[in-house]
Lab assay of single mutants.
Amino acid sequence: MLDDRARMEAAKKEKVEQILAEFQLQEEDLKKVMRRMQKEMDRGLRLETHEEASVKMLPTYVRSTPEGSEVGDFLSLDLGGTNFRVMLVKVGEGEEGQWSVKTKHQMYSIPEDAMTGTAEMLFDYISECISDFLDKHQMKHKKLPLGFTFSFPVRHEDIDKGILLNWTKGFKASGAEGNNVVGLLRDAIKRRGDFEMDVVAMVNDTVATMISCYYEDHQCEVGMIVGTGCNACYMEEMQNVELVEGDEGRMCVNTEWGAFGDSGELDEFLLEYDRLVDESSANPGQQLYEKLIGGKYMGELVRLVLLRLVDENLLFHGEASEQLRTRGAFETRFVSQVESDTGDRKQIYNILSTLGLRPSTTDCDIVRRACESVSTRAAHMCSAGLAGVINRMRESRSEDVMRITVGVDGSVYKLHPSFKERFHASVRRLTPSCEITFIESEEGSGRGAALVSAVACKKACMLGQ
């Protein structure tokens, strides 16, 4: 009897593995994704193909990295998701002549009506938060230079001027797309009239992360975010950046690689679950690469896999709870928690219980395998993109072996128990001629924006502006 049951459990697990095998990517698959990513990057950089390229390769006008001589107080704003952060950054000489960066910050959550109302409502709310922060720190009387981390696709015309191309991540505030974001912020500050600010720089969160990590390690020339969304930036040779005049030196390019796949480059790798996630998203047909990796989508992918296993009578005796059938019910943090389970399955059992399920031991094991399959594919897909960037940098610099540091931020990278190990191992397999160091950014977005502002202020002083 026991043997029969054991055989049935083994057969069930084997069927589960057959279904989950769809998520496995072979090294040849990853090399294919990497080569296609490089081709799209090239198209994004070139003037004649930029418009139709899915990977936009947006110039950021960040050319210099901090040298350690900029000092002063800077205000930093960070808008990239449902939370908005205001930070005071003091850049100065530390002990023994070292450079020191001290920060104080406060988080504000953005109400739904500000995210989806008008641009005026959104930026009025942001300036209200700045006003509140300055009151708390008794700094209303000071006109501070301000660095703005704005983590949406922007076409820069200068370091302090950028046109919002399109909202992502659930934002829909009308009247912002096609307009200068810094102008919208300046107008809102003017409307309030109770404080003055000098907006000197606007950067993407990947750029802010790279600059913040450069402060720790001067070989950091790539910034990457794996959180709600997924994106990367890197220092490109100016001669390859056709959208900006000049051939000397390097400029940081914001790849906006989340949109890779929007022209069909990933079609052969998309599964039924991916198509369902895409169809029910706020932007169907867009940001397809990001939807395979980002935390906004990972939990939902797992939920759809679990429903398939229920329908195949391989999980929960073929019956799903009402909660499990509800879109968004299986949160991405559950994926991390399930994979963090120590082996007694308590954590998995508790999560499934909150979803109205009474799982068996085998159910718990199957749910864990589903989570591992989805998150491992995410790590491997992400590795193909980064390997594409790094191999490109090595080739354009004609280096036999390139040493490089990548600064990384984002909740999936930082909080998932195995993502970074799987990701690092896969990147290294795909970049055999590179020695890569990964560092995690601390308060990256805010500190990085302030350091970019410090560079901009120093330049302005040198130019006598």
Score class of each variant (00 low, 15 high):
Arg429Ile: 10
Met251Val: 01
Glu440Ser: 11
Glu128Arg: 07
Pro359Trp: 05
Leu45Lys: 01
Glu395Thr: 11
Arg422Trp: 09
Gln138Glu: 07
His141Gln: 12
Lys190Val: 13
Ile163Pro: 13
Arg325Trp: 05
Met210Thr: 03
Ala259Glu: 10
Gly385Val: 13
Lys161Thr: 14
His156Val: 10
Lys172Val: 08
Ser174Ile: 11
Val226Ser: 03
Thr60Arg: 01
Tyr297Pro: 04
Glu221Ala: 04
Gly229Ser: 10
Arg250His: 11
Ala454Trp: 06
Lys104Thr: 13
Ser64Pro: 09
Lys39Leu: 09
Asp400Ser: 06
Ser445Asn: 15
Pro359Glu: 03
Thr431Ile: 12
Glu331Ile: 10
Ile225Val: 07
Ser411Trp: 12
Glu322Trp: 10
Gln239Lys: 11
Arg403Met: 11
Asp217Val: 04
Glu245Leu: 05
Val86Ile: 04
Glu245Val: 07
Gly178Cys: 14
Leu134Asp: 01
Ala53Pro: 01
Ser396Gly: 07
Thr342His: 09
Arg36Leu: 06
Leu430Thr: 00
Lys296Ile: 08
Ala450Thr: 11
Val302Ala: 09
Ile439Leu: 08
Asp42Ser: 09
Asp3Glu: 08
Ser174Ala: 10
Glu67Cys: 11
Val71Tyr: 03
Val101Ser: 03
Lys56Pro: 07
Gly328Asp: 06
Lys15Ile: 15
Ser433Asn: 10
Asn231Asp: 10
Lys143Gly: 10
Arg63Glu: 14
Cys434Trp: 04
Leu307Asn: 10
Arg377Pro: 00
Val427His: 02
Lys142Thr: 09
Leu266Gln: 03
Lys140Gly: 05
Ser336Gly: 07
Ser64Ile: 04
Leu463Gln: 14
Gly162Ile: 09
Lys13Ala: 10
Lys414Tyr: 00
Thr405His: 07
Asp278Trp: 01
Val33Met: 02
Gly446Ala: 15
Ser398Tyr: 05
Thr103Asp: 03
Pro417Ile: 01
Trp257Gln: 02
Glu435Ser: 05
Ile130Val: 09
Gln239Arg: 09
Glu268His: 09
Arg327Ala: 14
Gly285Val: 00
Thr118Ala: 08
Gln337His: 13
Asp194Gln: 14
Gly193Thr: 09
Pro59Val: 03
Gly68Thr: 15
Asp4Tyr: 01
Tyr125Gln: 14
Arg358His: 08
Thr332Pro: 04
Tyr125Pro: 02
Ala188Tyr: 04
Cys382Gly: 12
Asn254Trp: 05
Arg250Trp: 04
Ser100Leu: 10
Glu128Pro: 02
Lys140Trp: 07
Glu290Pro: 09
Arg275Val: 12
Lys291Ala: 00
Thr362Pro: 04
Ile110Gln: 05
Met37Phe: 06
Asp262Glu: 15
Glu48Gly: 06
Asp78Cys: 15
Tyr108Ile: 09
Leu276His: 14
Ala208Ile: 03
Glu95Tyr: 14
Pro153Arg: 11
Thr118His: 05
Asp160Asn: 14
Asp158Phe: 10
Lys56Ala: 06
Gly356Trp: 03
Val55Met: 14
Val199Asn: 08
Glu272Ile: 04
Met402Gly: 10
Ala176Lys: 05
Asp187Leu: 06
Ser321Arg: 12
His141Glu: 04
Ala10Thr: 14
Arg403Asp: 07
Val207Ser: 04
Arg46Ile: 04
Phe74Asp: 01
Asp113Phe: 13
Met121Ala: 14
Glu196Leu: 12
Val154Ser: 14
Met121Cys: 14
Lys90Asn: 05
Thr60Ala: 03
Phe171Gln: 11
Leu355Gly: 00
Val305Trp: 00
Asn166Ser: 10
Lys161Leu: 07
Leu146Pro: 08
Met298Phe: 10
Met57Gly: 00
Ser411His: 11
Glu157Gly: 12
Ser336Pro: 12
Gly388Pro: 01
Leu309Cys: 05
Asp217Gly: 13
Arg43Met: 12
Glu265Arg: 07
Ser151Phe: 07
Ala320Trp: 08
Phe334Gln: 08
Val277Met: 10
Asn350Ile: 01
Ser398Asn: 11
Leu58Gly: 07
Gly410Ser: 03
Ile110Phe: 08
Arg36Cys: 08
Arg250Lys: 10
Glu256Val: 04
Glu51His: 15
Cys129Val: 06
Ala449Ile: 11
Ala6Gly: 09
Phe150Lys: 15
Lys32Ser: 08
Lys140Ser: 05
Thr49Glu: 04
Glu177Ala: 12
Asn240Thr: 06
Ala53Arg: 02
Gly299Lys: 01
Arg428Ile: 12
His218Val: 05
Gln18Ala: 12
Leu165Tyr: 11
Val367Arg: 00
Ser281Glu: 10
Phe423Tyr: 00
Glu196Tyr: 08
Gln347Ile: 13
Asp400Glu: 14
Glu112Phe: 10
Arg392Met: 05
Asp278Asn: 09
Thr65Gln: 13
Glu272Asn: 08
Val33Thr: 12
Glu248Leu: 11
Arg46Thr: 08
Arg325Val: 09
Asp124Gly: 05
Glu248Asp: 15
Ser441Lys: 08
Glu395Leu: 10
Val33Lys: 00
Val62Ile: 07
Arg85Tyr: 15
Ala10Asp: 13
Gly264Glu: 03
Thr103His: 13
Val33His: 05
Gly72Val: 03
Val244Ile: 15
Lys39Val: 14
Asn313Trp: 04
Trp99Gly: 11
Gly385Glu: 08
Ala188Asn: 02
Gly410Phe: 10
Val203Phe: 02
Glu112Val: 10
Glu272His: 14
Asp198His: 10
Gln286Gly: 10
Gln98Leu: 07
Lys143Ser: 06
Gln106Ile: 14
Val207Trp: 03
Ile110Met: 12
Ser54Ala: 12
Val244Phe: 07
Lys291Tyr: 00
Arg63Trp: 05
Ser109Tyr: 08
Val86Met: 06
Gly258Trp: 03
Pro432Leu: 04
Arg377Cys: 00
Met34Ser: 08
Glu395Gln: 04
Met87Pro: 05
Glu290Val: 04
Arg191Thr: 04
Val154Thr: 14
Met107Leu: 10
Lys12Asp: 15
Leu271Thr: 05
Val241Met: 06
Val241Ser: 03
Leu307Ile: 05
Leu357Gln: 06
Leu185Met: 09
Arg303Lys: 02
Glu17Asn: 10
Lys190Glu: 07
Asp194Asn: 13
Thr431Trp: 00
Glu245Cys: 10
Pro66Val: 12
Glu177Leu: 11
Met202Tyr: 13
Ala370His: 01
Asp78Trp: 12
Gly162His: 05
Ala384Thr: 11
Phe438Pro: 00
Glu322Gln: 14
Ile130Lys: 00
Leu301Ile: 15
Val367Pro: 00
Ser263Tyr: 04
Asp4Pro: 13
Glu112Thr: 09
Ala378Gln: 13
Val33Arg: 00
Phe423Gln: 03
Ser76His: 06
Leu271Ala: 05
Asn204Asp: 10
Ile110Asn: 00
Met197Ala: 07
Leu164Asp: 15
Gly343Gln: 10
Glu96Met: 11
Glu279Asp: 15
Val200Ile: 11
Glu120Gln: 01
Lys420Cys: 08
Gly229Ala: 09
Tyr215Leu: 08
Ile189Pro: 02
Asn283Trp: 05
Gly385Tyr: 02
Gln219Asp: 12
Asp132Met: 15
Val412His: 02
Leu45Tyr: 00
Cys230Asp: 02
Ala232Thr: 12
His141Asp: 14
